[in-house]
């Protein structure tokens, strides 16, 4: 009995703190703007905007789990939806009803194209990291440039505007009164959670992140597993791209640039160890909720996006300080 209690305490300290933080932020924002914050609209809009960021944070977490990082996720997200957008423009007319009413098989093909782009881009990262042994930071800085660069070459700079209605549903639609992006996010989060907790692949990732050498001596296929984790990261990034372009009806080479820091922040705040070995999907969900409440509260208070950036950056530093403090007392 005490063993179970101990276990609960140990496992959930971080989650409890995060839940507390979420409640605190919620209370503070509600107290600061009682009129405007406590409206259904505010929460509804969060359910549309948060998922794309949440997916990027999960992607980041997966890369960090093996002690790596993926700085190319934004590039992958943009490249995936730009390719899909150009595909739609090629098969439909660039604008007008023909594009908007594109048939579902073609939209499905576009989704497949975007996903494949993400998986392929992730596979390139994975090959560089596992085969050529380039350190993940530099490998993904480099590929991030290349992916963004390809976006620029393909579009020449301006946004690809106009996506089919069905595609837009993924980013804007609702099902059973719930935002479709939220459903996508929750399904993906549940799958990744299940993968990390219950599958051989997920546990191998954690073991490799803890000690790659011991993993090799235990007979784990370290190279293949790490490679697959970057493929997965790329795939998750492309789903984020689909949601982003679906919501905004556009795709551009430099969309979502500030998401990179935010994804790292959420992953770190969620209790992911950037040196590898520890990750938590419920942590991501809570950290995402906390930070989305914070930033929409601030936006209601007419804080500019730049100020929100300042606060996000400050939050990252604060969460580092908190983690350091927690480790000291432990």
């Amino acid at each position: 009995m005490t063993a179970i209690a101990q276990r609960l305490r140990r496992v959930d300290t971080n989650l409890l703190q995060l839940a507390l933080l979420t409640v605190l932020i919620f209370a503070a924002m509600a107290a600061l703007n009682p009129e405007r914050f406590l409206r259904p609209y505010v929460f509804e809009s969060i359910t549309f905007v948060a998922p794309e960021l949440g997916l990027l944070a999960i992607a980041m977490m997966v890369a960090m789990l093996t002690g790596g990082i993926d700085l190319s996720v934004i590039g992958i997200a943009n490249l995936s939806c730009i390719l899909a957008g150009l595909f739609f423009h090629a098969v439909g007319a660039p604008r007008g009803p023909e594009l908007a009413n594109l048939a579902w098989p073609l939209v499905a093909a576009g989704i497949g194209l975007a996903l494949c782009t993400g998986l392929l881009a992730g596979a390139i990262n994975g090959l560089l990291i596992t085969r050529l042994r380039v350190t993940p930071i530099l490998a993904t800085i480099g590929t991030g440039q290349v992916y963004t660069g390809i976006c620029l070459v393909l579009t020449g700079g301006p946004a690809v505007v106009g996506f089919p209605k069905l595609w837009g549903l993924i980013g804007n639609g609702t099902a059973f009164g719930i935002a479709v992006p939220l459903i996508v996010f929750l399904v993906v989060a549940a799958l990744v959670w299940f993968m990390l907790a219950r599958t051989a692949f997920g546990i191998n990732l954690a073991l490799i992140g803890t000690n790659a050498r011991a993993a090799a001596f235990a007979g784990l296929r370290t190279g293949r597993t790490v490679f697959l984790s970057y493929v997965l990261t790329g795939g998750l990034a492309s789903i984020a791209g689909i949601l982003l372009s679906g919501r905004t009806n556009a795709a551009k080479s430099d969309y979502g640039v500030s998401y990179l820091l935010q994804a790292v922040l959420i992953a770190v705040l969620a209790g992911t160890n950037p040196a590898g070995g520890r990750a938590s999907v419920p942590g991501i969900v809570l950290a995402l909720a906390a930070l989305m409440l914070l930033s929409s509260g601030l936006q209601i208070m007419r804080f500019s996006n730049f100020l929100v950036d300042l606060i996000w950056g400050g939050f990252l530093l604060l969460s580092i300080a908190l983690a350091a403090w927690r480790n000291r007392t432990r």
Partner: peptide, 8 residues
């Protein structure tokens, strides 16, 4: 973190 905060 510091880069983003400073730019913000």
């Amino acid at each position: 973190g510091t880069g983003t905060a400073v730019r913000g």
